[in-house]
Amino acid sequence: MQITHLDGPGPVAAVIRSIGVLHDGAHQLVTDGLYLDLRHALRNPADDPALCDRTGLDPEVYDHVLHTPGARELIARTSVQLRALADEVPVGRLARLTVACQGGRHRSVAVAEAIAREVWAAWDGEDGVDVEHHHIDRPLLPASN
């Protein structure tokens, strides 16, 4: 697992997880909060031989995902929802978002990072945001969605 931490003087207020739903145990990571499944919403960079061995942390994959039609709107809507959830959770609890795709290496990673940056910027960097990439280091899966 890889973790990105966007720090602020306040506490971490949101945790965003990227997962690959086809990996064993992935659904056990979905505990509470918002859930976003990208398998049919965005094109899969794994279908491109030049991108398949990279991850959503690579600029080329990140750009590929964010330039998919509808991606930026989806990210904007989800970041608004996560900020609203963070306003409603009790003190000491975290707002959580799970972003899923097939393998957890490309789409979910890029979108989780983009949402985290948008939420953190909207909070003016006052509160922290953690992003956990649970399946980013797993091997590519054979089938594609």
Rank of each mutant, 00 (worst) to 15 (best):
P142I: 04
A14H: 03
R83K: 08
P11D: 10
T55C: 13
W120M: 03
S18L: 09
G33A: 03
V21L: 14
R77C: 08
A114W: 12
I16V: 14
L74N: 07
Q81P: 02
H67Q: 13
L97P: 12
S108N: 01
P90D: 15
V15S: 13
A110I: 08
L36I: 09
A13R: 12
W120N: 12
R77Q: 13
R105S: 04
V99W: 08
Q2E: 04
Q28W: 07
L6N: 05
P49M: 09
L140K: 11
R138T: 06
P142Q: 02
Y62T: 01
D63H: 15
C101W: 00
A13W: 03
P142W: 01
G103I: 04
L141P: 09
E126V: 14
A76K: 06
D127H: 15
I115K: 13
T55W: 11
L6C: 02
G8S: 10
A110C: 10
H133L: 05
A112K: 01
C52E: 12
A121M: 07
V21N: 06
A100I: 11
A86N: 01
L140Y: 10
V131H: 11
A121V: 07
D32T: 11
D127R: 08
G10V: 13
A76F: 04
L66H: 14
E113W: 02
H106P: 14
G92R: 00
W123K: 05
I75A: 06
V15P: 08
D7A: 13
